[in-house]
Deep mutational scan, measured.
Amino acid sequence: MASQGTKRSYEQMETDGERQNATEIRASVGKMIDGIGRFYIQMCTELKLSDYEGRLIQNSLTIERMVLSAFDERRNKYLEEHPSAGKDPKKTGGPIYKRVDRKWMRELVLYDKEEIRRIWRQANNGDDATAGLTHMMIWHSNLNDTTYQRTRALVRTGMDPRMCSLMQGSTLPRRSGAAGAAVKGVGTMVMELIRMIKRGINDRNFWRGENGRKTRSAYERMCNILKGKFQTAAQRAMMDQVRESRNPGNAEIEDLIFLARSALILRGSVAHKSCLPACVYGPAVASGYDFEKEGYSLVGIDPFKLLQNSQVYSLIRPNENPAHKSQLVWMACNSAAFEDLRVLSFIRGTKVSPRGKLSTRGVQIASNENMDAMESSTLELRSRYWAIRTRSGGNTNQQRASAGQISVQPAFSVQRNLPFDKPTIMAAFTGNTEGRTSDMRAEIIRMMEGAKPEEMSFQGRGVFELSDERAANPIVPSFDMSNEGSYFFGDNAEEYDN
């Protein structure tokens, strides 16, 4: 993207840094990872977990959730003011799984939030270390993106479920800051804005008074975040219109849905970061690795190297396929839920299948599930090659597409044709070009129609051997075009429920 120079890199967003050079960025990201790792080690000690239990991804998720809940100030305040039966607002906890007599047992633990905050700050040299908290939120978000298709949420806001490739980060909490905003897809931002506008339509006082002023500035800020994701002048001009509207209503909703559809071809720039579970960072720190000293990046080879040398386990339900569970977590670790499966298959070195073909449910185990038949197995999170994460949407291309997802959002900077089903997408653009945004709409449609099938995206960008740390010898991959490109292809993934 041309304006790259004016933006802070995501590592800076990730670490609240002012302008830093590459070495400083690597050190501050490393410091953040160190903090998460030290916190995780301490929690495993508190909970008396064995090494194996500490490497269980379900335990990692519970521990991450506990610290996120302990620092969720708004919710904590709300819980104190609106006490609900049987919930102690000062405590947080969740299921911890232990191996007892050759069987997995679930144990519900409860801790004072104050105590968890103390352990977290102690692991982070006394700081609140917001960057580390956001990092864990993005890992949870990436896992949700890989596990669930947001059909219901899309339909509720009037969008087409086939636009799911635009929904990265749709389950990120509001408090995820600049680093969170960077990884949100165009569809996620559109959905947040539509929800806001709908509230304004239904509630006369939404934009009024002292609160209304705050609401208005939040609305304009979200519009600017979305505008910054678009790469064409016409899309940005249309966002200006939406932002400046005196009284946002149905016309703005129409414009936003139009823009979301246009992003299936004229893709937005959305950041991709490899955020790993805390149970990967903990053992690495415990083994003596100093992330701050060595430096770390979320968008280069580092996460690949770390996963190459990590042992992570997962509980497996009786009829689940461990290899499929591994694929789910591998995609989440690489922030690749909406990437082209052919690119992923090449990088991973084994075939990556669409969601609907995987015999696996989510990673988390519900409290009512029976533990008797639970097994555990090693997650295979290694890769054959590594590639640089991208934040450009890439230019655009036609490809055989599917009944489910009709476009992709690249996660890796790797040369390819970008699949999208042009006739299906263009069919949504018939007729409606009147109104105050008509010239911009016409211009956007013209650009979409001009998108050429034979153009290559990320020209000359390749993948790298894991021994090639400096990215000196790019390998331009070859793809098996007979395979499906979309992950949520004609899909039956479970729906995400809060």
Rank of each mutant, 00 (worst) to 15 (best):
S3Q: 10
Q4A: 07
Q4D: 00
G5A: 15
K7Q: 02
S9H: 00
Y10C: 09
E11W: 11
M13G: 07
D16V: 05
G17H: 01
E18A: 13
E18M: 03
R19I: 00
N21Y: 04
N21M: 15
T23M: 08
E24R: 11
I25D: 10
R26K: 15
R26F: 13
A27E: 04
S28F: 07
V29M: 08
M32A: 02
I33K: 02
G35I: 09
F39M: 15
Y40L: 05
I41A: 12
Q42L: 05
Q42S: 04
M43T: 12
E46N: 10
E46P: 14
K48S: 11
S50E: 12
G54R: 11
L56I: 14
L56R: 01
L56G: 08
I57S: 03
I57E: 02
Q58M: 07
I63D: 15
M66F: 14
V67L: 07
V67K: 07
F71V: 09
D72K: 04
D72V: 07
D72M: 10
E73G: 07
R74L: 12
R74E: 07
R75P: 01
Y78P: 00
L79F: 07
E80Q: 11
E80R: 02
E81Y: 13
G86E: 02
G86Q: 13
P89I: 03
K90V: 09
K90N: 14
K91T: 00
T92S: 08
G94H: 08
G94E: 11
P95S: 14
I96Q: 01
I96W: 08
I96S: 07
R99T: 12
D101L: 13
R102M: 09
M105T: 13
M105A: 12
M105F: 14
R106Y: 09
E107P: 02
E107V: 09
E107F: 04
D112Y: 12
D112E: 14
K113C: 03
E114V: 00
E114L: 12
E115A: 11
I119L: 10
Q122G: 03
N125W: 05
N125V: 06
G126S: 12
G126Q: 13
A129N: 06
A129W: 00
T130I: 02
A131T: 04
L133T: 02
T134L: 02
H135T: 04
I138F: 10
H140K: 04
N144H: 04
T146D: 08
T147V: 12
T147M: 10
Y148N: 11
Q149P: 03
R156A: 07
R156T: 05
G158I: 04
M159Q: 07
D160N: 11
P161Q: 12
S165P: 11
S165V: 01
L166Y: 01
M167I: 12
Q168C: 07
Q168W: 03
G169C: 10
G169R: 02
S170N: 13
S170Y: 02
L172A: 14
L172Q: 14
P173V: 09
R174I: 04
R174G: 11
R174T: 11
R175Y: 01
R175D: 04
G180L: 03
G180H: 07
A181W: 14
A181Q: 15
V183P: 04
V183F: 09
K184M: 13
K184E: 11
V186P: 11
G187S: 09
T188S: 15
T188D: 06
V190Q: 05
M191P: 01
M191Q: 12
M191E: 01
E192N: 12
E192K: 12
L193Q: 14
L193G: 13
I194R: 07
I197L: 03
K198L: 10
G200R: 03
I201C: 12
N202A: 11
N202E: 01
D203E: 11
R204G: 04
G209C: 07
E210R: 07
E210K: 08
N211S: 10
N211W: 09
T215L: 05
S217H: 03
S217R: 04
A218M: 03
C223Y: 09
C223L: 12
C223D: 09
N224L: 08
K227L: 09
K229T: 08
A234T: 07
A234L: 03
R236D: 03
M238E: 09
M238Q: 14
M239N: 07
M239F: 01
V242I: 13
E244S: 07
E244K: 11
S245M: 01
R246F: 07
R246Q: 12
R246S: 08
N247H: 14
P248I: 04
N250E: 04
A251C: 11
A251W: 06
E252I: 04
E252C: 07
I253D: 09
E254C: 11
E254S: 05
E254W: 09
D255T: 05
L256C: 15
L256F: 08
L256D: 06
I257F: 14
L259D: 09
R261S: 03
I265M: 15
R267S: 01
R267E: 07
V270R: 07
A271I: 04
A271C: 07
A271E: 08
S274C: 11
L276V: 13
A278M: 12
V280Y: 05
Y281G: 07
G282S: 12
G282Y: 11
G282C: 09
G282R: 07
G282F: 11
P283C: 10
A284M: 14
V285F: 11
V285E: 10
V285A: 08
A286K: 09
G288S: 11
D290F: 09
E292G: 13
K293N: 10
G295C: 11
Y296V: 07
G300S: 14
G300M: 08
G300A: 09
I301C: 04
I301N: 05
I301H: 13
D302N: 15
K305S: 09
N309E: 00
N309M: 12
S310G: 12
S310F: 08
S314H: 03
L315Q: 06
N319I: 04
P322W: 03
A323N: 15
A323S: 13
H324R: 05
K325A: 01
L328N: 12
W330S: 10
W330N: 05
W330K: 05
M331R: 01
A332G: 12
C333D: 02
C333T: 09
S335F: 06
A336C: 08
F338Q: 15
L341Q: 08
L341S: 08
R342W: 07
R342C: 07
V343A: 09
S345K: 03
R348F: 02
S353N: 14
S353Q: 03
P354C: 14
G356N: 09
R361F: 04
R361T: 08
G362Q: 08
V363I: 15
Q364W: 02
I365K: 02
I365R: 00
S367K: 14
E369F: 01
N370R: 07
M371H: 05
M371I: 15
E375A: 02
T378G: 06
T378D: 02
T378C: 07
L379C: 13
L379E: 06
E380T: 02
R382M: 04
S383L: 00
R384K: 15
R384W: 04
R384A: 06
W386R: 09
R389C: 01
R389E: 11
T390W: 01
T390Y: 00
R391H: 01
G393Q: 05
G393P: 12
G394Q: 11
T396G: 05
Q398Y: 12
A403Q: 14
G404L: 01
G404K: 08
Q409V: 14
P410K: 01
A411C: 15
A411M: 02
A411P: 01
F412C: 04
F412I: 13
V414Y: 00
V414Q: 05
R416S: 08
L418R: 00
L418C: 15
F420K: 00
F420V: 14
D421A: 15
K422Y: 09
P423H: 12
T424A: 14
M426A: 11
T430Q: 01
N432H: 13
T433W: 01
G435R: 10
R436L: 06
T437Q: 03
T437S: 15
S438N: 15
M440G: 09
M440K: 03
A442V: 14
A442D: 00
A442M: 12
E443A: 06
M447P: 00
M447T: 12
M447D: 02
G450N: 13
M456N: 12
S457I: 01
F458A: 00
Q459I: 02
Q459N: 13
G460D: 00
G460S: 14
V463Y: 12
F464H: 14
E465M: 14
L466N: 06
S467N: 09
D468N: 12
R470Y: 00
R470V: 00
A471M: 01
A471C: 03
N473W: 11
I475D: 01
P477C: 02
P477N: 01
S478C: 07
F479T: 08
S482N: 15
S482Q: 02
N483A: 01
G485F: 15
G485M: 05
S486V: 00
S486L: 12
F488E: 01
F489H: 12
G490R: 11
D491S: 02
E494V: 08
E494I: 10
Y496G: 11
D497H: 03
